[in-house]
Write a protein that binds this DNA or RNA. Sequence first.
DNA 1: CGCATTTTTGACCGATTGGACAAACGTTAG
DNA 2: CTAACGTTTGTCCAATCGGTCAAAAATGCG
Lengths: 212, 212
Amino acid sequence: MDAETPVRRRRTRIQTEKRELILNAALDVFSQHGFRGATIDQIAEAAGMSKPNLLYYFRSKEAMFTTLIERLLQTWLAPLRELDDIGDPIGELRSYIRRKLEMARDYPRESRLFANEILQGAPRIQHLIEGELKPLVDEKAALIKGWMKAGKIARTDPWHLIFSIWATTQHYADFDVQVRAVLGPDRGGDGRFEDAARYLEQLFLEGLRPKA
Amino acid sequence: MDAETPVRRRRTRIQTEKRELILNAALDVFSQHGFRGATIDQIAEAAGMSKPNLLYYFRSKEAMFTTLIERLLQTWLAPLRELDDIGDPIGELRSYIRRKLEMARDYPRESRLFANEILQGAPRIQHLIEGELKPLVDEKAALIKGWMKAGKIARTDPWHLIFSIWATTQHYADFDVQVRAVLGPDRGGDGRFEDAARYLEQLFLEGLRPKA
DNA sequence: CGCATTTTTGACCGATTGGACAAACGTTAG
DNA sequence: CTAACGTTTGTCCAATCGGTCAAAAATGCG
């Protein structure tokens, strides 16, 4: 434990602050260039400190990355964890979609960092996907399956349902450049997330077939 | 023109073959590591030739990448180009979704290469997105809007509709590692694309609301 | 064959990379 | 003050990067 801390003792106030500063800068750089594309110098400049100083707080580039992505995965999965059997199923799914879309809007760097890692085969987080993400998805898939059996939502594949929610919402963070370019300056402005929210709600609830 | 060709004259048979060989190897490496993460040595090894030899056929790493991605974009947009007013709208959309999913299955490297480039802000293909992709999407969005006005499909946002088709289908190529890990060895086998096809058809046509 | 052209390679280059290290600096407690 | 500890930096290093170049090898052609 505390493998990436420069000292063995408890962290000082400065250490806590500087580590946060560095992680924020690292998130900027990693999410834009990927792990290999990012350089320690870039992160150091973004954090406003020298390279050796940065390596005083994190023993290596890899230590920054893993600290960042392990923390990220927790906040990333939080909305799915909140999916439960309390409200009505349709409402639960609707608010899960809404929360995921809000995360794409508010935390695009985190989304891109995660996407980048998965794209490259998840070499650094495979154990987290199999040990943490998969069990959670399986659990929620069972929950959704129950809703289907109870006739609360249409019968379909719950795993692919979850995939489609991830895909459609994270698309607005990961492919933001493309989305904005295609929508153009008017329709691609700040309102694009409200438009997306409206569209996705209709898609997931009603589909595209016209009502008789 | 012919900017990346080593010679000004017509291409020899060997040049044509070796260039294809190199591009295939480059697609492997670029799609896995991104532009900056990929090295010429890696590509050379994957192609089974020496680095200087590779640079005899392509004047630079960038030349390989742009050749690759410009060619890729054409095949990538082909299914959307085929979307037209001939058949019935629902059938047109259904087969567009199916074709895109088949492309994710058969050309995952191309999908990841494209995703990687967009993720990093599309620094090398912004002009293609604005000059080629956007007009095409606008044209097809108008077509879809016509279908809505004619009552053939439900009224919604045609641009976001296209985004959601891209997102859901390409997800199976770009996030393949995650998909397979979550589905597990049984459900994540070769059948996952058929499962996805069935699920997506239902999602886009009927949505999740149970039928009364 | 002999010659010109195309193809391939080993050696090399300057720039950049992640990281090490000791010295210097700052801060605080006694 | 000073000793101890935490922080910062300039300098340096080996490895790797994209790319060059001259020379060798292979090929095509009369």
